[in-house]
């Protein structure tokens, strides 16, 4: 790592001021993406602004029907939260399957969403569950939040404060992890609310996306037979050393089928 300055922010406004007064600033949440990229010198911030020192940013609360998770809540905290388990078990399970035990004690939901790694789990949760991303200045619907690989709608200095998950009737997350990295080769978040099906897929393309043709078919008829003839084009999917685009397209459909089976069992 190159040398840098560390600043401990005590509130959001201080963090913003520090960010805007620095040459090459970076916010740090759990640091489990930023530190490795800094070690590789892919990132070389002049100033690292610590968000962990801002009190209250990791709270998990239920307001009405909405599950509100603070951006600095770690994966371990979300997985172990009885509130999350009770109101959205699929989200707790997803958090408990991210990375490994040690990573889950440090990595945060806000950090994961702001990073938008193409194979991360939380983007599928936010998009599939129709979450709202609440920042220091506005609320961004998940449908417009994820822009491209490692790109989101966030302004450079914008800070995620919390993620609001509306109540859904049913949800399941199925992941086919890469056995070495444990990142999703394909991860599918399938949810149902008032008969409407939403499907968000991570790991398969440059950024998380909704499987519209499957959603339409399943909203009309929520059964495995309804999607028998539906396919996902491999054209925009990733090919890498782990899997071809065609294989990923196949995995997407298999996981969607399994999700439908799980929710109709």
């Amino acid at each position: 790592m190159y040398q840098f300055k560390v600043h401990k922010a005590d509130k959001l406004s201080t963090a913003l001021d520090l960010f805007n007064a620095s040459d090459e600033p970076a916010y740090i949440a759990g640091g489990h993406t930023l530190i490795p990229t800094m070690k590789q010198r892919l990132s070389a911030p002049s100033d690292v602004i610590d968000l962990a020192t801002i009190p209250g940013l990791d709270a998990i609360t239920l307001v009405g029907d909405t599950l509100q998770i603070g951006a600095m809540a770690t994966h371990a905290k979300v997985a172990a939260s009885s509130l999350v388990q009770e109101h959205c078990a699929a989200l707790a399970n997803l958090a408990g399957g991210i990375g490994d035990r040690q990573v889950r004690y440090r990595g945060t939901i806000g950090g994961s969403l702001a990073n938008n790694d193409p194979a991360a789990d939380y983007p599928a949760a936010a998009l599939g569950l129709g979450a709202q991303i609440v920042t220091d200045r506005r609320t961004i619907p998940s449908d417009t939040f994820f822009k491209a690989m490692f790109e989101t709608a966030l302004e450079p200095d914008e800070i995620i404060q919390a993620i609001h998950f509306p109540q859904v009737d049913q949800a399941v997350y199925l992941k086919f992890p890469n056995p070495a990295s444990r990142y999703a080769m394909v991860g599918v978040m399938l949810t149902r609310t008032a008969g409407e099906t939403r499907i968000a897929i991570t790991g398969a393309a440059a950024s998380v996306f909704r499987a519209a043709t499957f959603e339409t078919a399943l909203t009309a008829d929520f059964s495995v037979s309804a999607i028998e003839a539906v396919t996902l084009s491999a054209e925009t999917l990733n090919t890498d050393m782990h899997a071809s685009a065609e294989y990923r397209a196949h995995l997407c459909k298999v996981l969607i089928q399994r999700g439908v089976e799980a929710l109709t069992a």
Binding site: I35, R101, Q102, V103, R106
Partner: peptide, 25 residues
């Protein structure tokens, strides 16, 4: 690189990979 876990220690009672934690934090 946060993969192998050989550097695992406990910080405030939780197992973390000490290669990926800044000492100042």
């Amino acid at each position: 690189t946060t993969q192998c876990g050989a550097c695992t220690i406990h910080v405030d009672g939780c197992a973390v990979k000490a290669c990926t934690v800044l000492a100042v934090r």
